[in-house]
């Protein structure tokens, strides 16, 4: 097996506020192989966006990486621990946008309203590839054509408000990919788009990945999108990874009660006629400033045993078929998966 591109070990990113400390990421680990697509799934506030920002070292204040390791394998095979870099330093800036790039959720607000599309994309080319502005413009048009942007030579001189949401997200993708990164991180890239546009953008990302062989770290709360896009899934809850595994295993045989609850909160066709009700995950996210002993999911878990579950925090442990689970009772629960085809 090849060496991993990115390895996160026991990452802890905390927000120190006057009201207390929020452990946004609290001991999360994951591995991304070269060319692999990994999905990170969880409710809002589970720390998935903060984790992506920790990787690029752009965690907004007052967030701080408190511990752990983020190992990036560089082009030459050397391994760099990103947590050890100065977040304003030259080295991490050379990685941002060049080796690891990122696309964001809101294609409108993620682009500057007062600069042209071409200016904003070309800037990365000037910065990382050392192109002259005129060369960068030609490259930018090529990058836009590459993401199937219609009339790329005209769009390049337009402002974000002059084009549609889907086109803006195409421009964002062109910007992220123009320097041929080896890892693309996507933070809910299709959440703000309507369904047909979403499908186009996802298809585009798959095609680009096949062409370039880059790895994708795909953050979403939409399990349907995960099934379409990823091979490997990481489920996060309250800053921790609670279950990881190949996408089929996660869908067909979830081991963690939280994963199970997430899967069964997706509406299915015919469900209403069959009389089955849509189940939501019971309870809400607990107070982020409090941390109780035991399993973080115990207060919302239907399988809470009242003993080990509330006294002892479970560790992430392998349970076969390439899966790892953070649950004391994973093997005994026999949770039901969802039927249906999961595209490989």
């Amino acid at each position: 097996m090849a060496d991993p591109l990115l390895t996160i070990e026991d990452l802890r990113t905390h927000y120190h506020m006057t009201q207390g400390t929020v452990r946004a990421v609290d001991g999360a680990s994951l591995t991304v192989m070269p060319g692999q697509t990994v999905g990170i799934v969880g409710e809002s506030g589970c720390g998935k966006s903060v984790m992506l920002r920790s990787i690029l070292r752009i965690v907004p204040k007052p967030g701080r990486i408190e511990g752990g390791r983020i190992a990036l394998r560089r082009e030459d095979g050397a391994v760099t621990d990103l947590t050890a870099l100065d977040p304003d330093g030259r080295e991490i800036r050379a990685i941002r946008g060049a080796e690891i790039s990122m696309i964001f959720q809101e294609p409108m607000s993620s682009l500057s309203p007062v600069h042209t599309i071409g200016n904003q994309i070309g800037e990365a080319l000037v910065l990382h590839k050392g192109l002259k502005p005129r060369e960068a413009r030609a490259e930018t048009v090529a990058a836009l054509e590459h993401v199937a942007m219609p009339r790329a030579d005209r769009i390049v001189d337009m402002y974000p408000h002059e084009i549609s949401g889907g086109m803006r997200q195409r421009a964002m993708i062109a910007m992220a990919l123009c320097c041929n990164p080896r890892l693309l991180m996507a933070d809910e890239p299709t959440t703000a788009l309507d369904v047909t546009t979403q499908a186009q953008i996802l298809a585009l990302m798959r095609r680009l990945q096949e062409e370039s062989g880059m790895a994708i770290l795909f953050v979403t709360h939409d399990l349907g999108v995960v099934a379409q896009m990823t091979e490997f899934v990481v489920i996060m809850y309250l800053g921790r990874v609670v279950e990881t595994g190949p996408v089929r295993e996660i869908y067909h045989a979830p081991k963690h009660p939280y994963t199970h609850a997430l899967l069964h909160s997706i509406p299915k066709l015919g469900q209403r006629r069959a009389g089955a009700r849509l189940r939501s995950v019971a309870g809400g996210l607990p107070d982020p400033y409090l941390r109780q002993a035991g399993c973080p999911f115990a207060p919302r878990c239907p399988h809470n045993d009242g003993a080990a579950c509330v006294t002892e925090a479970p560790a992430l442990r392998p349970v076969g078929n390439g899966c790892e689970v953070r649950c004391h009772h994973a093997e005994r629960l026999g949770l039901a998966g969802v039927r249906g085809k999961v595209p490989a």
Partner: peptide
């Protein structure tokens, strides 16, 4: 604003 984060993720100083 989000576009500031985009610029930061691009690698600008």
């Amino acid at each position: 604003q989000a576009y500031v984060e985009t610029a930061r993720a691009k690698g600008l100083s």
